[in-house]
Design a protein around this nucleic acid. Sequence first.
DNA 1: CTTCTTACA
DNA 2: TGTAAGCA
Length: 130
Amino acid sequence: MNRIEPEGRELYSIADLAKEFGISTRAIRFYEAKGLLSPERLGSTRVFRRRDRARLILILRGKRLGFSLRDISDYLGLYDADRAQQVHLLAEKVSERLDALERQRTDLETTISELREIKKLAEQRLEKAG
DNA sequence: CTTCTTACA
DNA sequence: TGTAAGCA
């Protein structure tokens, strides 16, 4: 449709990125609406550069690791700012995420234990009755 | 509430 | 493309 001249591989259309990363163009627009991406415009057409692509990769990776768009946004907000501050925020968010996962693991183990106990009791009752 | 998707004007 | 409604 609207092919953007690829000089090397500097420019990407929203469709290019959607296809490359297996997400919908709507999702990309959603990220833009949330301020996570801010591609240039050639008229009404979005033009993504390597910088935008790099940010999208970070967004996707952040999501994979379980971070909210808000967290990712906060982090990306420091993209052009203080490196030390960015690293500091990252360390903080990662710690929070690890704590959350540890808590989830504890909860999971508790649930698994309870279910095993219920299963054991149920099987014992079957033996008595059977 | 969050993150999208679907759908319509 | 903004919005609304609906999903998980």
